[in-house]
Computed example of a mutant assay.
Amino acid sequence: MTAPHYDVIVAGVGAMGSAACWHLAKRGLRVLGLERFDLGHAMGSSHGLTRIIRLAYFEGSHYVPIVRRAHQLWQETGDAAGLKLLHVTGSLDLAPEGAGPVESSLQSCLDHGLAHEVLGHAEISRRFPAFQLPPGHLGLWQPDGGFVASEKAIYAHVGLAQSKGAEIRTGEPMLDWRPTADGGVIVRTERGNYSAGRLVITSGGWIADAVPALASQVKTVRQAIGWFTTRRPELFREGAFPVFILTVEEGNFYGFPLYEHPGFKLGGPHFGREPMDPRDPDRTPSPTQVRLIRECLARYIPDAAGDPLTVKGCVYTVSPDEGFVIDTVPGVPQAVFASACSGHGFKFASAIGEILADLSTDTKTPFDLSPFALARFDA
């Protein structure tokens, strides 16, 4: 029996895979998206109601052109789907002077002409009285930052892709795949085989199963996010409070204005991740991670240091240099992948979906992808 044929198969329909499905389908291609869980599931790294989008990027100025495009696409995608996906609240990097994050975010603003302000300790307290920070802290304010409604973004991408004819199959993971002699691929699932001209692999924590060249370069870790009872919710409402990255002695934490949940959301500590096997169904964060989050709230954001209302785990796939990996599978140019986004990738998903569509259709991307090449780990 002949395997059903598609122009492109997308393995993994989370943030980036759903975006790839949309960008491919609107180009008129026949697309199949395969997802191992339900749509919008909480087993990976694309859930939790909200994800930060920052244009002042302390991880490196080379990310800024892509995140600016993502910012534009989140607005356009929301408009097309009739949903508000992008919430512009302003973003605030908070760190001790000289620690690096504020200075690096400032440099990315200067490199790309982004609006910004450097705030001293007194000005931070005046504008955002919810923070009680040590005197040596500085802030980098960038007014275009905010958050993306994460599950809604996936639903929007999938709905738009389906409106252009894409097929999305949930509960059907890709078990394996192989290249064919004619330059295509065969993908195997429990329900059968499918053939395609191209393959896009966006399977998150399971990426090394599909791209063995990544197995020695990436690790899968668990991160904690929680929503906590607030004593003064008016301080944390959207419009009064920004998204933020906070560097303190307890670690690096990130937070949001109140949105669709009565609790204040804080995640971290960013580098306090704990290794895990994604095949383990338990996503419960460790008591240590939750304790550090609560200690951070008690010391620095005390009006949000109430009892936990919801606590969840989140799975990150991390590369050795904390950078993304976007490339073709070694020796198989018809298969492309994006992974190892190291806990800071969701904001880019709308643009990375477009990049993956470009790579899958031999379209020249406007971005320099060399910093994200797999071969950099061989140097």
Rank of each mutant, 00 (worst) to 15 (best):
L140H: 07
F131G: 01
K26E: 12
G28C: 02
A122Y: 06
R30P: 00
S125W: 13
G48A: 04
L55R: 07
G113A: 11
A70Q: 10
G78E: 08
E103S: 04
I154D: 03
P143Y: 14
G159W: 07
A149M: 04
E151F: 06
L86I: 06
R36H: 02
H112Y: 13
I52R: 11
A25N: 08
V118F: 09
M43K: 15
L73Y: 10
E97V: 09
G136N: 15
R51H: 01
A122V: 02
D93F: 15
F131I: 05
I53Q: 03
A95H: 13
L110S: 06
Y63H: 01
F58T: 07
G60Y: 03
E97I: 14
E35S: 03
A70L: 04
R69Q: 08
D111W: 08
F128E: 01
G120V: 07
S105R: 10
M43P: 00
S45G: 07
R30V: 06
L83R: 15
E35G: 03
Q72S: 12
D79V: 05
Y155K: 15
L160D: 11
A42L: 05
E103H: 01
G159Q: 14
G145P: 00
P96N: 15
Y57W: 14
V67G: 01
E117P: 01
L86C: 11
L49K: 14
P135H: 15
D79M: 05
P65N: 10
S163L: 12
D79N: 10
E59G: 02
I52K: 08
V88G: 00
V118M: 11
R36W: 05
R69L: 05
Q132E: 13
D38G: 12
H62Y: 14
H41D: 07
P134Y: 14
W141R: 09
